[in-house]
Design a protein around this nucleic acid. Structure first.
Lengths: 331, 331
DNA sequence: CTGTTAGCGCTTTCAT
DNA sequence: ATGAAAGCGCTAACAG
């Protein structure tokens, strides 16, 4: 049945069908202008021998692998794994396959991987990176970045982070918060997440609401302790916005240990809209990023780049929305 | 700098170094028996031209891609993403790359993907699948299965599921539970997770402890409702073991809605040891699978298969342990 | 120890 | 509309 003895080649198919290899190739590639009968013959031969084209040989000629790489800090994180999930789905629709590359937040790893990928001739890269790797990306390798702005001529997809911050502020104020706090880690490489805090702070000013903030340089070793002293110094805080959902979880943990209860003592909004798995709920009240849409946009952009199609805008910014979970009051 | 004009080939390197392509090939492949000076010359030429071998051409000759595929229901799930994370790390050590294939729990997708993978000549597959795909795996494509037993001659890696069930029972009894419940979904395809329940039930009998169980056929549409009626019918239950962590979370949610509080009214132990991300804690008290070790074992097994090395045992079963979270009493 | 050379399986002109 | 043939860049067998 599925016992391909010694690997069937195009030559075998050609012989079986009584045509030349060129013709078989044309059939494989869906070229038009093939006589109905020849097409039939070839297709039957392919079927009969259960022939599958050799992708290496093909790649050698065409310089295309139909493989794209996703370069991320780690797949072991709901944001990245959800993103990867959607990217894979989208790619599959376009007969492409997905290579996963964990860089583990290490710039050197990112660079190593990029070299590896160039050698392996992936057709393109979608990268969520936190270091200055743009210099290492050879200009002939299509690259789409997520959430991070490189040099001017780089393509990227992001969320409306600034607006998300504004939104968070409005939702907290709407629910009666009067002493706001923004809590985040700060990566030494600037990235789009900074905009979340900027939006939040700007909106607080706009709304004339008191605000203080805790911005901890990464890596976050002593985060819990820092958070604790922050709240000891600012016991009046009743509305919190964090740079992402996991940070919110950490804050909740610390506040719980300090004897404070969400809803009763404070309200908190995260950012990302993480769900550990497809059928799992959001972790808390949060600003939700449209991860599926981001993935879709990134793939679309990358494929256009690969196919050298015209691209209207090299930056795509997607809307976010508020999800009312159980860490903010019901309205 | 990194401006590879028109793709440097081995021929260019050979010319630059003043040797033949054969010699360059030998250098690339780390063959020994090359004169020190020639080696130097070639390496310098490679450096100077920043030559990278073409993996297609190589694959065409050697029939090896150094790519392996991970076939899973979905990467968007902490178990699979943690597993994938470790697989990728392990593969990278062996200069292999990882292709992610989401089958979305659909047997047809799994089969389609396997066909695609054979065509694309991945060197092997690691599969966590829930359908009878063994028939579709051509015997010449190395395959390692996780948690699922196929035909006799298939290689697989699993955890000591039965023992994990026993462990859960002992830990609950040790903490004073007298009315146990086992709750799980049941896939129509038998898999290793069934052993968890078997171990739990056997141990309960051994310990002379009362037990009832709720086993819901998948897909789980009305799980919440079923769980609710189950607990209404069995209000005396004080110790629960679920087939996995997410099921435990669902149970907790239902019980919370019914006004019951963990620790006060019941204790519950999950299975898997899920953590949403590397630096996140376990979700609850649970039987932890050593996912990293499983990944390592799977990769090792697969690489041996690929290299046609001798394999001692075709089944590897890894130990599990209990993690005391906040859904069981402290001892 | 190194050079020469025949393909690997496919695509793609160029003929016909 | 189809066939013939030249490579793509590399490896490996053979020669020297």
């Amino acid at each position: 049945m599925n016992e391909q003895k010694k690997s069937i080649t195009m030559k075998d198919v050609a012989a079986e069908a009584g045509v030349s290899v060129g013709t078989v190739s044309r059939v494989i590639n869906n070229e038009k202008g093939i006589k109905e009968v020849t097409l039939k013959k070839v297709q039957q031969a392919i079927e009969k021998l259960s022939y599958v084209p050799d992708e290496y040989a093909r790649g050698l000629k065409t310089n295309r692998s139909n493989i794209i790489a996703l370069l991320i800090p780690t797949i072991w994180h709901p944001f990245f794994s959800e993103f990867a999930y959607h990217v894979e789905k989208e790619l599959l629709k376009n007969q492409c396959k997905l290579l996963i590359c964990n860089a583990d937040k290490d710039a050197q790893n990112e660079i190593e991987y990029i070299k590896l990928l160039e050698k392996n001739k992936v057709d393109g890269i979608i990268g969520i990176t936190y270091s200055d790797i743009d210099k290492y990306i050879s200009s002939n390798l299509p690259f789409v970045s997520i959430d991070r702005h490189f040099s001017e001529n780089v393509y990227y997809v992001t969320s409306e982070n600034y607006h998300g911050g504004q939104l968070a502020c409005r939702e907290l104020v709407k629910r009666g918060c009067q002493n706001l706090a923004y809590i985040s880690g700060v990566n030494k490489h600037l990235n789009e997440t900074t905009e979340r805090g900027r939006g939040f702070k700007d909106e607080a000013k706009q709304q004339n609401t008191k605000l203080c903030s805790l911005e901890m340089p990464e890596p976050l070793d002593q985060a819990e302790r820092q958070i604790k002293s922050f709240f000891e110094a600012h016991p009046q805080i009743d509305g919190i916005f964090t740079v992402n959902d996991f940070m919110a979880l950490r804050v909740i943990k610390v506040l719980t240990e300090m004897g404070k209860t969400p809803l009763e003592d404070y309200q908190i909004i995260g950012f990302d809209g993480l769900r550990p798995a497809f059928d799992q709920p959001y972790l808390l009240s949060t600003i939700v990023q449209e991860i599926a849409q981001m993935a879709q946009a990134a793939v679309e952009l990358l494929l256009k780049l690969i196919r050298k199609e015209k691209i209207e805008k090299n930056v795509i910014s997607l809307p976010v929305h508020f999800f009312e979970g159980n860490t903010t009051k019901k309205l």
